[in-house]
Simulated assay, not measured.
Amino acid sequence: MLDAAAEFFAEKGFDVTSIDEIATEARVSKGAVYHHFADKRAIFDEVFQVSQAEVLAHVRKAITTASGDEDDRQPWLVAVTAVQDFLDSYVTDARKRSLLRQSASVLGVRRCREIDDELALPLVLGLLEELRARGELKDVSIKMAGTVIFGTLCEAATTLALADDHEKAGREASQVVSHMLSGLLKNAS
């Protein structure tokens, strides 16, 4: 059901997608859809969560690759890699861009933030804690820095999702976010 719903939401949009279409494509009854989901918005919520989890799985994989040996780990390089891969997930996947564009209007800003706080914010906070533990981070509130950084990343991702040239917007967003984040480093000029 979720795959069918994701395809319809991404291709046609939330407003014009019907429960009937989702049920037909998923080869289940309309009653089966309502057994699992209260309404179409609940389906979109789940589809969006899955999409965001996929983005973060991609980021975690990139972080693991960039991390190398624990002794050689360079948290700043890991953070920059995470930013790049987060944005690249939207640059390279039209479905994720479409779902992101619709998320605030379908779910509301508060629900989108709840999803982000649950799925992504812990990753950002973990990277900041690692930078602090290594003595590389200026004396800032980790919670506030993480919230502001992730808010910036969300705005960058949304902006590139709305852009006519999402590849160019993705490159520009990655550059700007990286420069902004470098200001948190103790050795930043």
Score class of each variant (00 low, 15 high):
1 M>S: 10
2 L>P: 01
2 L>R: 08
3 D>S: 11
8 F>Q: 12
8 F>K: 15
9 F>I: 02
12 K>H: 09
14 F>E: 04
14 F>C: 03
16 V>E: 15
17 T>H: 08
17 T>S: 06
19 I>G: 02
25 E>F: 02
27 R>Y: 14
28 V>H: 05
29 S>T: 11
30 K>H: 05
33 V>R: 04
33 V>G: 01
35 H>E: 07
36 H>F: 07
36 H>Q: 07
36 H>A: 03
37 F>N: 08
40 K>N: 04
41 R>Q: 10
42 A>H: 09
44 F>P: 02
47 V>C: 05
49 Q>S: 11
51 S>I: 02
52 Q>S: 11
56 L>N: 15
57 A>W: 01
61 K>L: 07
61 K>R: 15
62 A>L: 03
64 T>W: 06
66 A>F: 03
68 G>N: 03
69 D>R: 07
71 D>V: 02
75 P>M: 10
78 V>K: 01
78 V>L: 04
81 T>S: 05
82 A>M: 08
85 D>Q: 14
87 L>V: 06
91 V>N: 13
91 V>C: 12
93 D>H: 15
94 A>D: 12
95 R>H: 13
100 L>E: 07
101 R>V: 14
104 A>S: 13
106 V>F: 05
108 G>I: 00
109 V>N: 11
111 R>V: 03
114 E>F: 08
115 I>A: 04
120 A>T: 10
127 L>R: 09
130 E>Y: 11
134 R>S: 00
135 G>T: 05
141 S>I: 06
146 G>S: 10
148 V>K: 05
151 G>W: 15
152 T>K: 05
153 L>P: 09
159 T>I: 00
159 T>A: 15
162 L>N: 10
162 L>Y: 13
163 A>M: 09
163 A>W: 08
163 A>G: 04
166 H>D: 04
168 K>C: 04
171 R>L: 10
176 V>L: 12
177 V>Y: 11
177 V>D: 10
177 V>W: 10
178 S>N: 08
178 S>F: 07
182 S>E: 14
182 S>V: 01
184 L>F: 02
185 L>S: 04
186 K>R: 15
187 N>F: 15
188 A>C: 11
